[in-house]
Simulated scan of single mutants.
Amino acid sequence: MSDDELMQRLRRELVDGYDEELEMELEDRNVDEIAGMALDSNDYKEERQRYFRELFRLQGELVKLQDWVVSSGHKMVIIFEGRDSAGKGGAIKRITQRLNPRVARVAALPAPNNRERTQWYFQRYVSHLPAAGEMVLFDRSWYNRAGVEHVMGFCTDSEYEEFFRSVPEFERMLVRSGIQVIKYWFSISDEQQELRFLSRIHDPLKQWKLSPMDLESRRQWEAYTQAKEVMLDRTHIPEAPWWVVPADDKKKARLNCIAHLLSKVNYTEVERPSITLPPRLRHEHYRRHQVPGEIIVPQVY
């Protein structure tokens, strides 16, 4: 293979990697169409170019942050809360997209089972906390009790009050143990949530995202607003403050969240040793065996 051919193949490989983000971008297009945005307008194209340029730059900084977390043994918990369809999952995807999943783990716990309901409330979350050199991103967290559990009646009033007594001490204990706790609330308007729910209803690839609980949360908008206000007021502590991300614009919310996250860690770039690809060992008598045709996946594409 010539040097030119090698560089061409390397460029294609890089483009394929960046296409992952373009595939994710398709998820947002239905909302733009419903809103009447002309996808082929010059303003829209320029806005997308700026978005991707900034996203790739910030993701490069996230890789530096990851390297520093590993080398320093830092421990991080990043909590993502917000209404259904607020964009928490999309932000988490963009944060972890270029990172090592062994370093940056996502914890998205299902509803507690019968056994877990009898445990200390925080117990099932503790096993997901980071060790040295790890970042854990909670896609919803122990704050379920302050939101969905309270609004939907899944906890008693006494359990609800006990949560507010316990959570500040729980988080202070995490911080004292050396875990940095960063908490984000993704905030969207009533109108924007309605738009995103309609997008999911009309998109067969997204309908699975709408559960009966999601639809009920839409009906209970005001109750969730009141629960959120109480939660922010009673759990905003100096050791682990809340940060509110305006999220009506998904792209800006992602960029702003990542930029803020990077600003909350005093990381430095870790120098990596130069890497040289070693030559492959070749043996004169080695012969590769033919793979049986019946076990090869059909080449439909």
Rank of each mutant, 00 (worst) to 15 (best):
H289M: 15
Q123V: 04
D233G: 12
A131K: 14
I179M: 13
N113G: 07
W185Y: 11
E269T: 14
D3Q: 13
A240V: 08
A247N: 05
E194N: 11
S166C: 02
L26V: 12
F122P: 01
F164P: 02
I296N: 13
L262N: 03
G82S: 01
M213S: 12
L58E: 02
Y184K: 01
R280W: 11
R57L: 09
D16E: 15
E13F: 06
E61Q: 15
E294Q: 12
S199V: 10
L174G: 01
Y125N: 01
H150V: 00
K251D: 11
L262W: 04
A104W: 01
R165W: 09
A247L: 06
G153H: 12
S141H: 01
V151K: 01
H260L: 07
N113W: 02
G36D: 04
V63I: 14
D3A: 11
V31A: 12
H128V: 05
S187E: 13
D16K: 12
K264Y: 03
I182T: 12
R9H: 08
A104N: 03
Q192T: 01
G89P: 00
L205P: 05
R288A: 15
A104Y: 02
K252D: 08
E171V: 01
A91L: 06
R48D: 07
H260W: 08
P101E: 04
V181Q: 03
V167W: 01
E171H: 02
G17Q: 15
L58H: 03
V106N: 05
L261P: 07
W142C: 04
A240K: 08
T156Y: 08
M76R: 02
F80L: 07
A259W: 07
D139N: 11
D84E: 04
F163D: 00
M76V: 04
D214Y: 08
R172F: 03
L232Y: 11
L205F: 10
T235Y: 06
R200P: 07
R29V: 14
L39H: 08
P241G: 09
P246C: 08
H285S: 14
D84Y: 01
R218P: 05
W185M: 03
M1W: 08
M7D: 04
Y184A: 01
Q207V: 15
V230I: 13
G178K: 07
I79P: 00
I79R: 00
